[in-house]
Nucleic acid binder design. Structure first.
Lengths: 136, 136
DNA sequence: TATTTGCACTTGCAATTTGCAAGCAAAATT
DNA sequence: AATTTTGCTTGCAAATTGCAAGTGCAAATA
């Protein structure tokens, strides 16, 4: 995936050049909500991303400053991927996607509950997630 | 573009199956903000979508209930594409993308001004756009 | 210590999708 | 009547995706 060719100066278009594909936001979702952080964590997600695609997306997200790669504190064999500030700031976008989904898709009751809570006080929800992420 | 295979039950994943690509949200942007409505309007957008890709995206968006195709009131040669309620409801997502862009990309001052206004009172901005769209 | 397993990838290749150019029929304009 | 516009479709090369297999190092197990 090419990371350096802008189609236009439109901010929306530039943003889509960064995360406008079927996989990037799912990786970011895993980082935001499911405490995932290693290559294998992402591979195991239920959507079943192919290993080469995962590698290319992680590389692109890193090059675009959305995630940061570091050594895993518990094992030399592992790497740890974390969201940068820029990546964490994608949370409001993802929340709005969830809120839209809630209106137009069926989904498990448990997820519905979480969305309800998030919708009720968006700022509080965002702050809570950020707190959890930065506490680690 | 296949429109009917879900990768998982995750609402975010399902949403990305609908609009998670480099072009769909740009078409929706044109409909939301730039009063575009015909095939040629979309073709002329500065990002330069290929004609076959445009056709496939319009078809997929229609199948997914995001847009509706109708006869153009002024010409039999033209069609008119409009956003459905479901499509208009994507506005908050797109607004959050603009707000994120505002933080991390350079962009024309004029767009910055609009984003500032939108950020100031999101609900008011959304209502204003909806009003303009439904007045037609 | 030797061997197996886990982790983070890379490589090869077929299938799908994209992007470009050309073509086309119906409607509108000259 | 001839030309242009509109909304597509078609053909084809190039790029991207998805699947399977392989690699090299670290860590766990025998």
């Amino acid at each position: 995936m090419e990371t350096n060719k802008k189609r236009s100066e439109c901010p929306l278009s530039c943003s889509l050049d960064v995360f406008g594909d079927k996989w990037s936001l799912l990786i970011i979702r895993d980082l935001l909500f499911f405490k995932k952080g290693t290559y294998n964590d992402f591979l195991k997600s239920e959507e079943g991303i192919a290993t080469n695609i995962l590698a290319s997306r992680l590389k692109a997200l890193e090059e675009n400053g959305i995630i940061e790669k570091s050594a895993h504190p518990e094992s030399k064999a592992k790497n740890l991927y974390r969201l940068s500030k820029k990546g964490i700031d994608l949370l409001p976008i993802i929340m709005e996607i969830y809120i839209w989904s809630d209106k137009y898709f069926n989904m498990p009751q448990e997820i519905k509950e979480i969305i309800k809570e998030a919708k009720n006080d968006k700022d509080k929800f965002v702050k809570q997630i950020i707190k959890e992420l930065t506490a680690e």
